[in-house]
Design a protein around this nucleic acid. Structure first.
Lengths: 220, 220
DNA sequence: CCAATAGACTAACTAGCGCTAGTTTGGTAA
DNA sequence: TTACCAAACTAGCGCTAGTTAGTCTATTGG
């Protein structure tokens, strides 16, 4: 029996149809939190989107904060899991920045709202950032840092530039998903469409390739 | 009533000491809006930071929205002006992506809260983005797009990848300033310190150099 | 079949928001 | 000095937020 993860919220055991409603609530809340951020999202909006009255939310989550935490956990959990699995299992290219970047794009493309949630958090949560985010962010960046250090072409960079380089790659990826709604509003193009996502993945591959390869090209 | 009293026209719309207070209000509001975003910032917080009572704000700004608009305008205006001046006057390197990027870094380093304001806007303002932001964002991106098209090494990119490339550069720059407070909270390092800003500028120069140069190096 | 209960509802509370009204204060100019 | 007025203050209104209490209903296990 695998150890149950620390179930911090969910006051009610949630019966059969209750579990389904909880899921719908999470979907609605995810969308709204991703669009507007925590404080601009009201529970009445969430409830309306679900099609219930707002006090009914309390049958499934004990507070707005708990709902928010549940949304984050549901989204971040699988991504982190898949990512660290990919990184740890020593499968081909798990140490190659380009392939890691590609994998991240793949994972986020399936949860395109997560980057916006993270962006809202990193914007508003300067000091009091969600514990969850703190917990994964530091190790993930540390790992990326190490990966860059041992990548080909690392000698091009000053050691103290590597954190900046990692941040830059992070922002390219997160920023892309984050700006998608605005970009569509301004230009009409959907950055989350399959074609656009492919373009972005290809671009990312080329950028990483251009930055993490010794100046002479060594195709493999 | 006639009796138009001599009343020499006022140099400032607000009285002498009033103008100074308005400036302090703008400073305080800028900080809070940049930290927390619009809806998470209360006028009472702003007033407290200024050291006055919140109704006094209405002696200087007619509403929260007006205050917010004033903050944005005060920050964005000079940057846009300086930037378009640099781009239009045909000074050396005004068509060189690396130098433009450097100039942008310079401008933003002097107003490090502006990127956070913009980030909040682009995150929350999907549909109802501030008019101001809409007005500068599209032309700025269009100009960047054109610059990339005619830059050396443009043949490396598919035409439909160029918008993505521009976005990527945008996100590297904006993201850097945006994440600074969080980064400091997590690592203790201040990304807005002079040294760090220099490192970032150098990094940006190298990244742009690696991406916007024909594969063979042609130093000039 | 009935009692238990998950899960919806309505009603309403409290806190805090943006904002207004009316008053006081202190510097400036006649 | 005195009149004026920008700009501060205190008090509080109306509204909406998150949250709680209590009720009704329909599914379900014994």
């Amino acid at each position: 029996m695998p150890a149950a993860p620390a179930r911090t919220f969910k006051p009610t055991p949630a019966g059969r149809r209750g579990a389904a409603t909880a899921e719908r609530i999470l979907d609605a809340a995810e969308g709204l939190f991703a669009e507007r951020g925590y404080s601009a999202t009201t529970l009445r909006d969430v409830a309306t989107r679900v099609g219930i009255q707002n006090p009914s939310l309390y049958n499934h989550f004990e507070s707005k904060e708990a709902l928010y935490a549940a949304v984050l956990e549901r989204d971040i959990g699988p991504v982190l899991e898949a990512l660290s699995e990919f990184l740890l299992d020593g499968s081909e290219g798990s140490g190659d920045p380009a392939q890691v970047a590609e994998r991240v794009m793949e994972l986020l493309a399936r949860r395109p709202r997560l980057p916006r949630l993270v962006a809202h958090e990193t914007l508003s949560g300067g000091d009091q950032l969600t514990r969850m985010l703190r917990e994964w962010m530091v190790p993930v960046f540390a790992r990326a840092h190490r990966m860059v250090e041992i990548s080909p072409g690392a000698e091009r960079w000053n050691p103290d530039q590597i954190p900046h380089l990692v941040l830059a790659m992070y922002h390219i990826v997160i920023g892309y998903f984050t700006i998608a709604p605005l970009y569509e509003a301004l230009t009409g193009d959907d950055l989350l469409a399959e074609q656009a996502l492919e373009r972005q993945t290809r671009l990312l591959r080329e950028i990483v390739g251009a930055l993490f390869t010794s100046t002479e090209k060594s195709a493999g």
